[in-house]
Design a protein around this nucleic acid. Sequence first.
DNA 1: GCCTTGACGTTAG
DNA 2: ACTAACGCCAAGG
Length: 112
Amino acid sequence: MKPSTKDFYQRVYEVVAKIPEGKVTSYGVIAGYLGVESGARMVGYALNNYDPEQLGYHIPAHRVLNRLGQLTGRAFFEDDSMRERLEQEGVEFTSEYTVNFNKHFWNPFDEL
DNA sequence: GCCTTGACGTTAG
DNA sequence: ACTAACGCCAAGG
């Protein structure tokens, strides 16, 4: 059965929804987990396009960062709500918009 | 249907 | 170690 882009988005949402509180992961890792190694940008695109109403549930998109642990998607959140949420969950920051990836990194495969 | 853009990542210089 | 360029694939103009 041919996986459509819609299914890909759906899978992205499902994976992101499983990220535990206080943990973070990256776009590339999610893409790789879904079998699309070079689809990191699409993950970001999926999150940008995601609609809680249509999806039926809401996902912690603020826990998805780039491979360096930087909050590259902060512009899509209200003010600094992305950083504030992470701090509130106990995530340690190494700089203004960079988290301690080594300490809080979450791998989708660990879930198995 | 071609061109540009982008919540990314890797490689080359 | 730092910066520039390219590859990637879907969406919108």
